[in-house]
Design a protein around this nucleic acid. Structure first.
Lengths: 125, 125
DNA sequence: CTAGGACCTGGAGTGCACTCCAGTGCAAAC
DNA sequence: GTTTGCACTGGAGTGCACTCCAGGTCCTAG
């Protein structure tokens, strides 16, 4: 019952596919956001499709403004197994709430911006 | 033909009203984002309603992710008078475009998040 | 076989946008 | 008129999230 982790990507390939830089990938590994990266006998990393999937999650969290520390907490929950699912939901929900608030604020600010632009247009030479 | 700049707020009052910290206000003055702040004979700043309005603009730009350098450019345009209006419009439009892109991305990422939450709910104990 | 490129590590450095501090001076309330 | 608090300056420090570097190894195309 192997979860068939197909694909064996060098860090460069993984960077291109995930949208992170190689440096960021190494950094994320160092701080514990990515675990269990295989190595060749000579020490090179080999990422697989599971990593790419996980990186997709991380990218989503990061790009929606989650601080690295919270991502780390989430990573820990995932690593700790199924009994943490309720907590994972709670974390993601809290984050979703934050994202919603951020979006609402953005909408309001964008309207303000539009008003400003319209004003300038109305007085433009 | 005085533009009736009513109100005379200490930096503390201005901070409370604008949502910036006192330090940030001083910082913004230093780097040229806020100009013409009156001083009492003893050197204390006295902000007025025009400043508050301008700070509202800055807050909008900042909170929508405009880098300080661009805000500075905008401030310069405003200071340079009416013949810069076209350029101001261009700057704000470009920023609006960036905000729109950011919002679209946020919507997509939020959906992904929702999917993740739903998935966890579906496998929750 | 060799030249060029990809990858390795640990640690130092970067950029942004503040934020804090020491030491000092004014203000406002009692 | 003194205590408590707000404000001043210049400059140093912070926090976050990377990003870069030196000095080395490895891999692969020709």
């Amino acid at each position: 019952m192997d979860t068939t982790s197909r694909g064996a990507y060098t860090i460069g390939e993984c960077a291109r596919r995930s949208g992170f830089t190689m440096d960021t990938l190494r950094y994320y590994e160092r701080i514990g956001l990515i675990g269990d990266i295989a190595r060749t006998t000579t020490g090179q990393r080999r990422f697989n499709d599971e990593h790419l999937e996980w990186l997709g999650v991380l990218k989503c969290l990061r790009d929606t403004g989650m601080p690295v520390e919270q991502m780390h907490r989430f990573a820990t929950l995932v690593k700790d197994g199924d009994h943490t699912i309720a907590e994972r939901i709670a974390l993601l929900e809290a984050h979703k709430t934050a994202v919603d608030a951020r979006m609402a604020d953005l909408v309001a600010k964008r309207d303000y911006l539009l008003g400003k632009i319209d004003y300038y247009r109305s007085v433009a030479p």
